[in-house]
Design a binder for these strands. Structure first.
Lengths: 193, 193
DNA sequence: CACCATTTGGAACGATTGTTCCATGAATTA
DNA sequence: TAATTCATGGAACAATCGTTCCAAATGGTG
């Protein structure tokens, strides 16, 4: 092995992820990626493949390091009611950050690319299934701990939780009114009491 | 007035609307629009302005001729329970059509463009408000007619209806399983009984 | 020190992007 | 019929697209 790459592969992928996350696949050019990563064109191609390969790597990274990591931390650290609320709050908090209101990278990709790209559709679906499973686990855990009533239909409400999050994230893209978004969150939480 | 345009202005705008609806703003080129409309470049520019102007016109047309028209017809022709269900069914039916699963043009635009374009954000928001108002009107009408219980919180449920539709339309883009989508619809309808 | 394998910088590729220009065509008006 | 007015077809624009190529630079290896 003659020598190593001069740039940080993980950090570069994070920067690319943020660019795709903020603007989408089509609106992000390779030149944009060269600019935000500070890495040369040839190096990007040699390391990650073409634009779609890089996008897929970025989306995989988001799925594992942002989405999955968040759910893992919430599931481990918070009580079920707080964990469920925190999922909503994570997105609602975005709207107050002027240049960070990017929504959810997976949902953005679902709308832009999933219908035309089965590989992306599969990633989106498994992520949605995982979020539903997270809600299901939290609700059941909450029922055992006494936080939620026993007679709740956990399966049904887990699915409702997923749909509510998806709807909320759509709203976030055009609607910066926090009160409205909190009402959506509380509307779902009230069904768990 | 020397003579008229050789092409149908409304029909051409409909074709452009379908193209933008199916693929989004960035992924649809002016060449695509020339191809699907059959109208010359210069005529498109002379009639509608630049690409963004044409997109805005297409989105306005969708809002008035697809979304608003659907709600008007359902509100006039159907009973409240059937009208509410039909909103969901309109989208669910899409997934069975191989090349017609475009979701909702307004929601697609909300995700792709609203954060970067205030004019589009405003259109998306007013459309969402209108859908919520539709649900509210239907629920109240249903309460008067006896279809829905009097004690329902109509305001709250109207908002929940909007969120549920938005979530469902996100799912449609990657998830063709009709049974799953029907469960979402029925999950909301059951809250109106 | 010479050799090697690989990254790097940057030019360059052809294709496509959104947009404009102009000569031609056609229908109305004088 | 002649003049006018505007849409039309198609070439052409500069800019940017994703991608590739190559010479220069690099640091470990024999």
């Amino acid at each position: 092995m003659p020598w190593e790459k001069r740039f940080d592969i993980d950090q570069t992928l994070n920067r690319a992820m943020e660019a795709f996350w903020a603007r989408g696949f089509e609106a992000t050019s390779m030149q944009d990626l060269v600019d935000v990563t500070g890495v040369n064109r040839a190096s990007l191609y040699a390391t990650y493949g073409d634009k779609r390969d890089l996008f897929l790597a970025a989306l995989r990274r988001y799925d594992s390091e942002v989405r999955r990591r968040l759910l893992d931390e919430l599931g481990a650290r918070e009580t079920p009611p707080r964990a469920v609320a925190a999922v909503f709050d994570k997105f609602i908090r975005q709207v107050t950050q002027p240049d960070g209101n990017w929504g959810c990278f997976l949902i953005n990709s679902a709308l832009e690319l999933a219908p035309h790209d089965p590989e992306i559709a599969a990633m989106v679906n498994s992520a949605q299934d995982d979020i539903e499973a997270f809600f299901l686990a939290m609700i059941r855990k909450g029922q055992q701990s006494g936080d939620f009533p026993e007679q709740l239909d956990a399966t049904y409400l887990a699915r409702q939780g997923l749909v509510t999050v998806l709807g909320l994230v759509v709203m976030i893209r055009s609607r910066p009114e926090e009160a409205y978004l909190h009402a959506i969150r509380d509307g779902f939480l009230s069904r768990l009491t």
